[in-house]
Each structure stands twice: as C-alpha cells, then as structure tokens.
C-alpha cells in the first residue's frame, strides 16, 4: 500500500525513546497558528521556493515542462506557481535546495526498507520508528500496515497524533503502536478552535479512549505565549486522572518556520512572542503540581 509522505528524518531524538527515525505524512485536519511544518497541512503536493537562496543558474528552467520556472528580463529566476504541475523535475535539478517538492507517494515496503537501515541504532539505544505529520492517522491504513511490519520485526513504534481522528482510525493502529505521542494544544474548546481552527471535543474523548485501551501515552504541549499558556492548569487537572500517561513534554514554541511559509506562498501565521525560560519553568511547575512527570 502507498502512503503520502513528505519527509523521513533519521536520528530523531525527541520523538519517543532512543534513536528513532520519524516518517512525516502529509495532510492535517488542524491548522495551528504556530505550525512549524506548514508543508504538512495540505494534502496536495507543493513546491517550496526560497528566492533568496537562488543563484539563478537556470537548471530548473531548462527542465520545467510548463514554463512555471522562468528567467525574467534581468536574468533572475522566477516561479509562476499557477503554472506548476508539481512534477518535481525542477527540484531534482536544483543544487542548492532552493526548490523542494513536498509530498510523494511511497510504498510501505519502500519506506519499511529505509526504516530498517537504522535498525542497529534502534537496538543500541532502545529506539524505533515514529509516524508523524501532519496527522499521520489521516492515512491510517497505510500506518497500520507499516506499523505491523515494524512490530513483526520487534521495532518499537510510536504514533504522533493530534487526536482529531475517529475511534475506528485509532483502533486500526492500536495493536501495533507501543507509544502514542498525543498533542494537547488547549483544554477549552473555544481556545482550541482559536488556536487550531477545530474543536477539541473528539481529541479529549480519544485521549480517554487510548488511556482505557491501556496504551502508553506521552502528552506533548506546545507552549505559545498569548495563545495557550493559560490553559496549562486546566490541562493538568484533566490529565491527572489518566493512568497510562508516561509523561508530559513541554515544547517551547519557536519561529524558525517563517521561511517555509514564504517558500510555499502561504500566509505566515506564526506568533511573534517566544516563551521565556521563566515562563517554561512556570509551565513545568504548574503541571508538576498535578503529579505529572515532565519529560526533558
């Protein structure tokens, strides 16, 4: 079966225990204002173009079949997105990662083979494979197939999910998933909607469902000043009754992804303020008062 992937990251260290390889699948039901992987949101293939890194060598122009890549009268390389059919020929011709194609279909066997390249590292470190996104469970069948293959080889598996999927979807991957990395962006529904564009009703229900299913869960909370940091107390209170939460990881918001928005011609929604060390320490203290283990 084929999956729709936009990246595979080797030596991923903070996506579950040990040394991991993380597969990023494309498409997400949420649109978080702070999203640092904007290329993951759309279910369509996209071409990223970073104008300021371009050396105007013209190699992409030579291979572009539609004229989307062209040189203007001053010899400067330009990109007409309306003509682009995302064939990827230009990104293959590009030396400097100025043009990057996001999204490719890949067979689970092909992905599995690449994941198994690092099996020695998983074994030495107690690591494994993490499926992430976007929201990887939008492609639950593919995930289940890949996870099953990994599980059959004794590889530790983790699924990084926003939880905005159906229970049926979760049920498909539960048997082959050792750890869920579960995002909690807000507790109040209106705040969640403001931050991500969708309700969190299903997300909270699914968390309960996974907990009842006895699956190990690591909660991940992005900390974005002015957006969700006032939610931590409520989140802490909600989580303290769950008995399968192995820990909570606080993710300090960063704004490194600005260039990606520009390269994809997307509206940059990234908030300006970064959390201070003091705010992060306070966030840790807040959650620890509910008996939650904070992972570092």
């Amino acid at each position: 079966m084929r999956g729709y992937v936009f990246d595979i990251k080797h030596f991923a260290v903070h996506d579950g225990p040990g040394i991991r390889t993380t597969v990023f699948l494309k498409g997400c039901p949420l649109k978080c204002v702070w999203c640092h992987n904007p290329e993951s949101i759309s279910t369509q293939t996209q071409l990223g173009f970073i104008q300021h890194k371009c050396t105007n060598c013209g190699r992409c122009v030579a291979v572009c079949p539609t004229g989307a890549q062209y040189m203007d009268n001053d010899g400067v390389h330009r990109f007409d997105r309306s003509k682009c059919i995302t064939c990827g020929k230009c990104s293959q011709a590009c030396y400097g990662k100025v043009l990057t194609l996001y999204g490719r279909y890949a067979d689970s066997d092909e992905i599995f083979a690449e994941l198994m390249e690092d099996v020695d590292f998983y074994e030495s470190s107690g690591g494994g494979v993490t499926l992430s996104g976007g929201e990887c469970l939008l492609q639950a069948e593919f995930c289940a197939e890949l996870l099953e293959k990994l599980h059959s080889r004794g590889i530790h598996t983790a699924v990084d999910t926003c939880g905005a999927v159906s229970k049926k979807t979760l049920e498909m991957v539960i048997p082959y998933t050792d750890l869920f990395l579960y995002d909690m962006k807000a507790f109040d529904e209106d705040v969640h909607k403001k931050c991500t564009g969708v309700s969190n009703k299903l997300i909270l229900e699914n968390l309960r469902f996974l907990n009842e299913a006895g699956k190990n869960i690591e909660i991940r909370i992005p900390c974005v000043p002015g957006w969700n940091m006032d939610q931590l107390e409520k989140i802490g209170k909600f989580l303290c009754d769950f008995d399968h939460i192995v820990g909570v990881r606080l993710l300090p918001y960063h704004n490194f992804a600005g260039t990606k928005y520009t390269s994809l011609d997307m509206i940059n929604t990234l908030p300006e303020n970064l959390p201070t060390d003091k705010e992060m320490a306070l966030a840790t203290d807040t959650l620890e008062t509910f008996g939650l283990k904070i992972l570092h």
């Binding site: 260290v13 030495s124 107690g126």
Partner: peptide, 12 residues
C-alpha cells in the same frame, strides 16, 4: 533523551 541517543550512537 539526547544523552541516551549519544550513547546509542556510540554503542552502534
């Protein structure tokens, strides 16, 4: 996590 990963690289 990072320290464990460093150890994992070394051991591998």
């Amino acid at each position: 996590d990072g320290l464990n990963a460093m150890l994992g690289l070394l051991r591998t």
